[in-house]
């Protein structure tokens, strides 16, 4: 119960009828059944069965126990869901929140190929520029300074101080400029 949100969560949602907890319970019950069906075909069998191996833990036993837990707990949650008073906060999201979260997910999805193909600094600079503009920044000089300097600083710190690899600058591909190795 570390988080304050968990403690003061709004529990004024509807109870006594089918709600998101009931739907979640059904999801877990279905998931448990799928898991039971997947276990025989998606867990490798040992090539050699040693004598007396009946007293060892099979690779299937733990997944079966977890699938069984999903089933029992899913049924428990379904039975209890009608008396739980919790709000589905996803439903409380307004259009602005949904747009912002969706936009951030799109930016994140685009950031992955940008970072991998253009290099960390250029990819990150592009992402910071787009995201900060979307979230209200109109000071473009500051945006340019932040979006270039901070990724360069992180790049330098990770490569020189921590000796780790980040997708290099595009200029790394040119043999005469080894800026990434400064």
């Amino acid at each position: 119960m570390g988080s304050l949100d968990d403690i003061v969560e709004d529990d004024t949602g509807p109870a006594g009828r089918f709600n998101f907890n009931s739907a979640a319970a059904i999801f877990f019950i279905v998931f448990a059944i799928v898991l039971f069906l997947l276990i025989p075909t998606n867990i490798d069998k040992p090539l050699i069965v040693m004598p007396g191996s009946g007293s060892t833990l099979s690779a299937e036993l733990f997944p079966q126990m977890v699938a069984g837990s999903f089933l029992i707990l899913g049924l428990w949650l379904f039975a209890k869901s009608f008396s739980i008073q919790q709000r589905n906060e996803l439903r409380d999201l307004n259009r602005e929140a949904i747009t912002n979260v969706a936009m951030t997910l799109v930016i994140m999805a685009a950031y992955v190929p940008l970072m991998v193909n253009l290099g960390f600094v250029v990819g990150s600079a592009a992402m910071i520029a787009v995201m900060s503009t979307y979230f209200g920044n109109r000071n473009y000089y500051l945006m340019a300074a932040v979006s270039i300097s901070i990724p360069m600083l992180i790049f330098f710190l990770f490569r020189r101080v921590l000796l780790t690899e980040l997708p290099p600058f595009p200029i790394d591909i040119y043999p005469l400029t080894h800026w990434s190795l400064i």
């Binding site: 951030t104 990150s124 992402m127 995201m131 920044n137 990770f158 980040l166």
Partner: peptide
């Protein structure tokens, strides 16, 4: 500090930290 900068910078750190773990997209 402006939230419009803090959030993308936090993302940059999260992505960089994830990448250096194994270097896999």
């Amino acid at each position: 500090i402006r939230k419009s900068f803090l959030l993308p910078l936090t993302l940059v750190f999260a992505f960089a930290g994830t990448w250096i773990f194994r270097g896999q997209p």
